[in-house]
Design a protein around this nucleic acid. Structure first.
Lengths: 118, 118
DNA sequence: CTGTATCCCGGAGGATACTG
DNA sequence: CAGTATCCTCCGGGATACAG
């Protein structure tokens, strides 16, 4: 695991700390999904078109390391696991709401400037 | 400029949209700094130990493209520019506050689990 | 079903030198 | 002072195949 910050910053660092946790490409979606209910591995994958097993596993492991997500083995015979949020993970709800709200309010203004026609 | 999203997602996508804008390594700090006042290029660099000119320029250009930051040439004789936030950029203040607050409230809990002694 | 093991690639970030 | 121009490194993300 890598160090969180390689230098001390008393300015935007707080913001960066939080950002690093949710920086992974699929972590935002994973967390958003898990706010509602716990998910099986393949349920998650189906909700996230484009992600591969390896990457999804990786994102989940990292969220687990951060203490935001819990992996629970339900059964071994038919191998089944269940991913859910920890209490700490749940505290991110207002944060994610904040991000979502901004996108709803101002996202289109950004798009207007990015205008990509590929 | 790259496409914002390569697929349509109606779940965590909103969150992702906002995250992509501030994903750059130094963007959080830049924005945080610019909330207070406008900065000269080298003022910014001095506030951000570790960043190189090239990278800082890149981050600023991207924020500019997104419509969050304005670059204003103050004078040519002694070459001077000034970076400040647009109205759109300023709307990110509550979002950044949200991220910062979470770090203050729960950041240490994450650290506790990451425990890296390198 | 839920992974791990390889191999691979592009791009973000960085070091350094040069410029108007 | 505020940048470009090169070149380079590293790592997140992905494709694919295999495994318990």
């Amino acid at each position: 695991m890598k160090k969180h910050k390689d230098y001390d910053c008393n300015l935007g660092c707080m913001v960066e700390n939080t950002l690093e946790i949710i920086r992974g490409k699929w972590k935002g979606i994973v967390l958003t999904l898990l706010f509602d209910k716990c998910y099986r591995f393949n349920e998650l994958q189906r909700q996230m078109p484009g992600v591969t097993q390896r990457i999804l596993t990786k994102q989940l492991r990292e969220l687990e390391q951060a203490g935001l997500v819990v992996r629970e083995v339900l059964s071994l015979k038919p191998f089944a696991v269940c991913y859910s949020l920890t209490d700490l993970g749940r505290t991110l709800k207002p944060v994610m709401h904040c991000l979502k709200q901004w996108s709803l309010d101002h996202g289109h203004e950004v798009y207007a400037l990015e205008t990509v026609q590929d």
